[in-house]
Each structure stands twice: as structure tokens, then as C-alpha cells.
Design a binder for these strands. Structure first.
Lengths: 221, 221
DNA sequence: GCCGAACCGTAACGTACGGTACGCCCCTGG
DNA sequence: CCAGGGGCGTACCGTACGTTACGGTTCGGC
């Protein structure tokens, strides 16, 4: 029904939720985006979604509009459950961190994440749309805003010791992701089985605790 | 004179070094790539380089060939000086690591690196060329092969303690880069002054030493 | 001074694709 | 039962750009 537009230049998430049918179309576009990358054609999307090009243009206005809506649609699908912070002992904190790490690794190694990041990076150069901002918002920054409360809680409970939650988070981010994302984006075949992800999550968590655990005396930033 | 071709699919760095004039053309293409991103046109390159399109096609065969040659040209320009490993005390090791970190941050935040990574990521989806492999080879893997000897030397000197140089390197990589590269690629304006780079390099180095320094008892990976 | 090769500038061709127009079907409401 | 609108399929238009062709110019060799 309503055009899903994005106020050019202004605020993000300025969008109405798409109808059932529109969601189907967006899903088709998403699947095609994963397969074809940025060189998907409007005709291909129309064919895949079994709809007419005219409909696409009526709904999304533009090729960029379609891409925008697709990315936002995927973003809206991964709204996550807020973490419970009732357990405040070291074991549960460790488990939480490990879970975050594991989830994050699974996300960034997924086909759709790779595809979305690829197109967003590609579009980031010529600032026609803000795909980059959207992806960033629903990736790195969403992770931060979910993880920071946990870190703060850990500090409150005397389990963690850090000055700034932001820098602590960024260190955790680096320890978890390392070179994985850029390698995947650049097409490197990285072996990421369930097992290695689990191991990496455990290792990253231990390293993070070694650096920011309250019982350790490594505070000299 | 000779076409600068790349054996499709096979080995990298299978290329003759370009002539003086060709280098000038490639530099022009590179500058244009930084400005325009992947939507540079052959006409634009020809105009910028003050050469004819016919020459471009004769030399590089193809648009992809031109891009390939441009990326390789930039890669060939950053052949680095191997590090001296004569000083084996903690101070010099720290200085080396810090220098690596600082250099790396400067590289990934440079305009040309961002532009090159952007096009390489964009092309990584549809496997027409191996720009991704080239960039990876001259970025992340080049860094690894330069840094690993230093790490090994540090271990020999009893300053570092790690099982596998590869994983140690990847941790260092993560501690240095954190979220910087992906944010830059996605168009986020990251403040990276000389000062912050220095601070980040120092911090990453200290964290790395905290994790892998031989005098610390954090070996339970 | 002449020849050919390399190269510049530009015009021309072909195509792929974004965007639009139109005819037809189906479905709903009156 | 009929009118109308939303939506499918498709043909079509315009354009941008990759690629090619061609005439003019410079330059080294004889």
C-alpha cells in the first residue's frame, strides 16, 4: 500500500512496516541479493517475486528504494531478545559473553550478512543511500547496545574492571571478530564450523576476562 | 607494450611490470578509483590519463583487466622493508609491535586502502576476478608474514609465550583493528588522528603483551 | 624526406538495464 | 451481475557505458 520511503539524508528507521505481500517480495529480493550480489536486476526481482516491475516501482519508488527496504527488512527480522542480567556471578557472565561471541560469529559468517555487508560497502562510496549506516546500526552498534549493559552489570557486580564501556566493548569486538569479517567479505574461504565458532567464542571470552577481569592486575590500559 | 594479464583463476602476481607510461595511466586510474569508487568509467580513466580508450583496451584488455592491474599496481607500491630482529629485549619488541599496529591503522584508514577494499569487496560476490584475493594477499596476509617472524623471535627470546604464531597474530590483528576497518568501509566517519592512532597502537600492544607475555600466567587460552 | 608503429581524440555501435505504459485477469464491493 | 481497482506480464523507451573503428599526429629508423 504505502510507499516504503526513507527520508533522504535524515533519520533512519523512518518506515512503515510492509504488508504481507511486500514482505514476500522483499524476501525474494533478499534471496536474490544473496545469490547475485549488487548486480541483481529489477526484472530478476520481479520475476523471482512473481510480481510486475510496475508494482516494484510503485511500492519502492526506485532501485535504491528497493535495496533500502530490503536491507531494513532483513534488519527488522533480527530484533533480538534482551539479555537477562539476574545472574551476576562469574559463571553466568562468562556464559553470556561466550554466547554473544558465538552468536556474533554466526551472524557475520552467514550468507545473508555477507551479502548485505557487501552491497552496503559497495554503496558506501557514492553516498546515494545510507545502506552502510543501516547495516552498521543493526550490526556493530546493535551488538554494542546489547552487550554494554552486560558489561556494566559485570562491573557493578565487581567482576569486571574497566574505565569506559565503549572501549571495553571494542576490545571484545576485536577479540571475537579478529580478521574473520574482512576475510569473508573479500571472498576468502574461512572454515567456520560450529565447533570452531564455539572454540573461538571461548577463547575470546577468556582473553577478554584476562584483560578486564577484576581479579587481574592489568589495569595499565 | 605487453598486455598485463592475469591468468584467470590461477596464480597471482603473474604479471609483467608496467612501463613508465603505463604506470602513469595506472596511477590516474587509481586516483579516479579513490574519487569515484567502482563506478569509474573507461572514458573517465582515458580522459584523466590523457590517453585513448583504444590504448587502454590494448594494454589491459578489459575493464576488469584495468581494475586488476590497478589494484596490483598499488599493491606493488607498498612492498615493505623487512624488520630487523637484532634487538631482542622487551623494549624493542614492544616498539616493534607498536610500530606495526600504528602502521597498520594508518594503512587501513587511508583513502586508497578504503577505496581498494571497497571495490574488492564489491567484486568478491560475483567471482569474475580475484581482486579480493589480491587485496587480502597484500593486506592481511602480508602483515601476517611480516609480523610472524617478530613474534617467533620474541618467543625465542623468552619474551612471548604462545602455541601457534597464526592465532597469536590473529589476536593481535583483532586487538589493533577492532571495529575500525568495517566501520570505515561502511562509511562511518571514524576520528583517526595521529594521536588516537598512537594511543590505540600502544593500548593494543599492551593488551597483546598482557595476553601473550611470557611473564604472565595467562596460558589457559 | 619517407614509412610504419604507437598513440591520441572522438565518433559510432551494441547491449544491458532502469524506468514507464498498456492490456488483461482476478477479486471485491455494491 | 457489473464496475473498478490492484496487480501480473510484457512490450517499449532512453540512456549510460563497454567496446570497437577510424582519422590525425608524433617519433624513431632508413
Amino acid at each position: 500500500m504505502g510507499k516504503i520511503v526513507l527520508q533522504a539524508g535524515a533519520d533512519i528507521d523512518r518506515s512503515e512496516t510492509p504488508t504481507e505481500r511486500q514482505q514476500a517480495v522483499l524476501d525474494a529480493a533478499l534471496r536474490l541479493l544473496v545469490e547475485e550480489g549488487d548486480n541483481l536486476t529489477m526484472t530478476a526481482v520481479a520475476r523471482r517475486a512473481s510480481c510486475s516491475k510496475e508494482t516494484l516501482y510503485k511500492w519502492f519508488g526506485d532501485r535504491d528504494g528497493l535495496l533500502n527496504a530490503t536491507v531494513q527488512w532483513q534488519a527488522s527480522k533480527v530484533r533480538v531478545t534482551p539479555v537477562d542480567r539476574k545472574g551476576l556471578d562469574l559463571a553466568s557472565l562468562t556464559a553470556s559473553l561466550q554466547r554473544f561471541a558465538s552468536d556474533w560469529l554466526k551472524v557475520i559468517s552467514s550468507d545473508t550478512s555477507i551479502a548485505l555487508n557487501r552491497v552496503a560497502v559497495g554503496h558506501a562510496g557514492s553516498g546515494k543511500d545510507d545502506l552502510g549506516a543501516i547495516v552498521l546500526q543493526n550490526g556493530r552498534f546493535a551488538l554494542a547496545s546489547r552487550l554494554k549493559p552486560v558489561l556494566e552489570a559485570g562491573r557493578q557486580a565487581g567482576l569486571l574492571d574497566f574505565e569506559d564501556a565503549e572501549t571495553a566493548f571494542r576490545t571484545f569486538f576485536g577479540l571475537v571478530g579478529r580478521d574473520v569479517q574482512i576475510r569473508l567479505l573479500l571472498g576468502d574461504r574461512v572454515e567456520l564450523t560450529e565447533a570452531t565458532i564455539g572454540g573461538d567464542a571461548r577463547r575470546a571470552t577468556q582473553q577478554f576476562l584476562a584483560l578486564f577481569g577484576a581479579n587481574n592486575r592489568l589495569k595499565s590500559l
